[in-house]
Design a protein around this nucleic acid. Structure first.
Lengths: 155, 155
DNA sequence: GCAATCCGGACCAAATCAGTACCCTTTAAG
DNA sequence: CTTAAAGGGTACTGATTTGGTCCGGATTGC
């Protein structure tokens, strides 16, 4: 499967938890308690999100984190980019020149970029507000099945 | 970054190499020579592709592999599914129930599926024929830069 | 001044993946 | 019928990545 970092999943959990709270700043510890995630991990996520401008941080005694923008002004692509780094499906375009072997076959590189753009556009179309919305009616997922109906929604 | 398996990249290389050859069947060894990839790896990829019906294999003395369908009838999503397994960004929906911790925050599960569908649709829109097309004019990639302009095309 | 909080980096263990090797089955040629 | 060529499947190993932790330092409010 296309592995999306687990930290990115946690990031969405933390950010939705912030939405559901009051407007005040949230400390890393309080968010860890509310989400059930380990505190150091939450702290790491918040730092990454703040570095990319998705969070506004306030240091000092009564400090904490706040969302930098409204939930519908933050999309999934931005969150992924903050945690996992730039969205690129392959590492074909890297510093290592010898990895590609025969160069005559490598013009496909530009075409992977086409795929990257398509995926990026899809991810930009989903906002944090969409993710925070409580589970919506979905005919594919009759919510009574915590077992593993996962294979159904695969390609 | 969103890690797409390196084997999937190789799969596209191998399949484009098959397109550029004549119509006859290709052996795993001949494809390995033409692509510069290690032979056992090519064999592994071909087996995976054949298992999902993307390749037609012919055993015996003069056997080999052929594309099961026309290049424009095969899309990237199918290749990824054959190599990396079903396309699912997160493993939130798994057999392990304890992993999620607080259940009250987990309704976002259905929303990840929305993201999955968006990505899947994007990948289905790119065919193998698109990938095999020799590098097309792309303003973002002024083909004279094998160094590492990779960060430019990131999100 | 003191305490609470964020900031930045380094560090370690565990899971995952790429790659390889081996043996079996099938098929066609001689 | 025999032989060789090719795919089919499984198991194993080394390396890379990732998730998670920890520590000292900087900053702000009380």
């Amino acid at each position: 499967m296309i592995r999306l970092s687990k930290l990115t999943d946690y990031a969405v959990v933390v950010m939705t938890a912030m939405i559901q709270g009051d407007g005040g700043p949230h400390t890393a510890i309080s968010l860890a308690e509310r989400t059930g995630l380990p505190a150091p991990t939450v702290s790491k996520i918040l730092k990454l999100l703040a570095r990319d401008g998705l969070m506004a941080s306030h240091r000092g005694a009564t400090g904490g984190y706040r969302l930098a923008r409204a939930p519908d002004a933050i999309n999934v692509a931005q969150i992924i980019a903050a945690i996992d780094g730039p969205i690129a499906l392959t590492d074909c375009v890297e510093g290592a020149p010898g990895a590609c072997g025969v160069e005559s076959l490598c013009p496909r590189r530009g075409n992977w970029d086409r795929v990257n753009r398509a995926v990026r556009g899809a991810l930009e179309g989903v906002s944090l507000a969409d993710m925070a919305r409580p589970s919506f009616p979905d005919p594919l997922l009759p919510k009574a099945a915590p077992a593993l109906p996962a294979t159904a929604d695969a390609i």
